[in-house]
Design a protein around this nucleic acid. Structure first.
Lengths: 107, 107
DNA sequence: ATTATATATTGCAATATTACGATGATAAAC
DNA sequence: GTTTATCATCGTAATATTGCAATATATAAT
């Protein structure tokens, strides 16, 4: 096969896994950390800072955008990406709950 | 290429991404949740409960083991898997730090 | 209008992941 | 010793991910 059998799991299991997948690449970790340190952020910066080709950065940004963690607004020719704080906090909470629940019932 | 360029990122970025990758599959989320609800856990149970073939479950368990999140001890012919609480708490802390740091500096 | 700059999209190659049948290893039960 | 039960490993097919060159798009600057 090769594809995950998502249908045999719950929605929240799939959602958490999906979110984890976005964080499952050092480039995307690095991108999120960099954006959080800037007032705003343009792709060119990321290409220089991170050291991957422009299309690759663009793809990674898209992965992060897909789960609603980023929103970008064009300011002229520059695209300023920003973290969606609401979504960020929600995700943080989801991970927190998972870690806490598993740990509390742990054998 | 197809392989991540891990060498251009920091150790902690790679480690967090690596851990996220382990959580990036609903089967592994489900396995961890199930083990936490049991006194201990044997592979056969997981095969029945989750609904994936035994070799597939075994592979997923191995992924989780690789980052030290599980330790299994044989009790006769049964292998009892247990969550490594120390490692679990350390991972929880790593995710907590990441989420908090990014959020605090967020634009 | 033309050129330069910034980002997205397409197409493709290399590699990784997911899943399972078949087989192997080990220990309990008989 | 043979059978049964439990788990791991091997081999392999299907699919997903990663990365980049080439190209497209869109705005700014000239």
């Amino acid at each position: 096969m090769g594809a995950s059998k998502t249908h045999i799991f719950t929605i929240s299991q799939n959602e958490l896994a999906q979110a984890a997948k976005v964080l499952a690449h050092p480039a995307r970790i690095s991108i999120l950390q960099y954006i959080s340190r800037q007032e705003n952020c343009i792709c060119t910066d990321l290409v220089d800072v991170i050291g991957l080709a422009q299309p690759t950065i663009s793809q990674h940004l898209n992965e992060i955008k897909k789960i609603g963690l980023l929103h970008g607004t064009f300011e002229g020719k520059n695209l300023c990406y920003c973290i969606n704080r609401e979504k960020w906090v929600a995700l943080q909470q989801a991970f927190h709950l998972f870690f806490t629940n598993v740990n509390q019932n742990c054998c």
